[in-house]
Design a protein around this nucleic acid. Structure first.
Lengths: 213, 213, 213, 213
DNA sequence: AATGAATGAGCGTTCATTCAT
DNA sequence: TATGAATGAACGCTCATTCAT
């Protein structure tokens, strides 16, 4: 079962919190294993040995469940990203490599390969999902942004941000090709080296104003 | 309404041939505007002023409709890609730039931004969709592959292929950030220049065996 | 494919008659192999390589098809029964045995085992089917009736008829137990001997008025 | 409304238990009055003043409903048969007569006349129904078997069983002719006397090995 | 004779939701 | 907290039938 960053709810009974976690875990499991369509209230209830009626006690509507699940999933990624950032005594280039490899390894996990395409699809038609997902990526880019600033201090802030966006997006795009059970999963190590080389080169050589030319 | 590469049905009356494309167009319209979940047989029928019973005359099962739609959508991209490939009197670097810009512009269209995330999500749980989508990307990489071979002839075939995969994936990953109505859509021109610079640099400088190190 | 006594239709084109037979045969095949529910207009059309529209040219409504099929099936049994009746130089008892064995063997055929329960079920809610089926059985009892008269001439006509009914019904009742692919099909030879012994004994020993006692 | 041997559900509220039997009764009513085809989920729901959605709460699939109904119907016959068996101080012949008359009277009830032909038809294409129905008849033959053993102790077990099968099948076969609203229903009393005479005579006079000759 | 196209009704099933217990 | 019961809408699909071509 995938990890979840459960936001502790203030108040409520002990069992209540447990129930919440149990439900979110079951929902995520269904999402990962069988896709968003399979994540119905009934199946979630069944997956955590709970009757449908009780599930609606915890989450009165499906939207409630989806949003809380979204928060939990995204928070878990955000805390992950926040943890990476600052290492001392390591060159900025090496730290960039580290961050990239960390992200690309994560892409290969079943959870990430399965959940994110669902989120991208949902975000096309649900502004709430869109906001939440973009917010998460923004947080993920903070680390990249800082490293880029170290490597290429001459770059203005807005250009740095676009650069981080490009690097982040670049890696996300490999999900569909080299993610979990995807045809090029075995080639992920090669892709990692390509990515790192390419990103370091890019960040090092790009000139202020070059992308505006 | 988005374009579709409709395989003209031989035989039948004109009315029937019209019905066929009408349905596919309506289905695509729903997929683009409201997502895969909204693409129900009933709504498709309604969207083309047709009764449900008649829709099942054209497409006995939803799977039939989905597959034919998939074929039509993907074929339209494939013919697009095939058309680009060979231009004479232009440097390989410029042609790489052209191909990349073409793909990145396409990513910004509503159709592409909306359809592909749905396909990525579907392909996680539907082997047929996975196959068809990967097949399409393989065709799309042919052009990149040929250009890479020109720029960097020393590169062995398998490494060239991974390079093309990286470049293609890189661009796809920008869909969620700079695609139609996405927060960084206005920055797509910058991203294009970053991408082109980065890819040309990567292809030109990478050494045989480097990605295997 | 089961035999059918096709009533030649006067007039019409050559192909028309062929079509009729072809359809009835296909319908019977479906009825036998998959039951009445599977005998839909669509499946019948498909089973005889015909488009639905054309099937409705031959049989405008399903009722038409069912009734004509019923006529054809039942006629085939009636002609079978009519053929048996008169043999000379054979004792009445032996002829009774022969008729019974013939009927019991017929019960074991796939066609009879499968079709008749459907007819019995249909006849419960469709007076037309009821009439037609009972008419057929009446014809089948004629042979029995004549033989009974020979064996036990003292028996009044109405009692003879009930006797024939009992004997006929007795045998029909074995369909569900010893018919085609039924659990006691291998024991049918034993049942035949029991039946013959029992019926001969019954017909020989029953006294006029005894069943009215 | 016909009788049903309802297995009381443990647990649940009274409302729910009522709903359960209400549904089974309504389903049986439809089966008896209008045949299996009319026993649709929608009509069953309507027949017990229930919405379709609620019916599927009690019986998630139609198969569930059909099987439980089958169990209830067949159980009611089985308990009936089991109750008959042992009477003391009555000759075996008289008990045979009693059992036969009981069965033949039952055949004349609307429920039996209507339900069993449906089951016979269904059992041709549904192994579950076939098993359940044959199992019921096997239970029904136990009583006959014991009585036959008393009347003709010399008969080996396997021959006794076939004899019981013949007698049982004989009577079942009268359903279509003398059952409820069938053309010979008024003659059922005559048929009863014929049957009893015939069966007693058969059981008494048959010799071991005779049916194997 | 035969196909193509369309309708309207019904089927079994799944679903999110609500509310009484 | 938790279960049981109920609703109403939608789903994909099959069907008998009709009619233009």
């Amino acid at each position: 079962m995938p990890d979840l960053a459960i936001v502790q709810r203030e108040g409520g009974y002990a069992r209540g919190r447990e129930g919440h976690v149990q439900i979110l875990r079951a929902a995520l499991g269904l999402l990962v294993d069988s896709g968003y369509r399979a994540m119905s209230m009934r199946r979630v209830a069944e997956a955590c040995d709970m009757k449908l009626g009780n599930l609606t006690y915890y989450f009165p509507t499906k939207e409630d469940l989806v949003r809380e699940l979204l928060d939990a999933v995204i928070s878990s990624y955000e805390t992950e990203f926040d943890a990476i950032v600052h290492e001392t005594g390591v060159s900025a280039e090496d730290r960039l490599a580290e961050v990239c490899i960390l992200i690309l390894e994560d892409i290969c996990t079943k959870k990430t390969t399965r959940v994110f395409p669902e989120l991208w699809a949902l975000s096309n038609h649900d502004p709430f999902v869109l906001d939440r997902v973009q917010e998460m990526y923004a947080r993920a880019r903070v680390a990249l942004d800082e490293i880029i600033a170290e490597i290429n201090p001459a770059l203005p802030e807005d250009e740095r941000r676009i650069l981080a966006l490009f690097i982040s997006g670049s890696m996300e795009g490999l999900t569909m090709f080299a993610g979990h059970e995807k045809p090029f999963q075995p080639q992920m190590p090669w892709l990692e080296r390509i990515a790192v080389k390419s990103f370091v080169q890019l960040v090092s050589t790009i000139q202020p104003g070059e992308m505006r030319s």
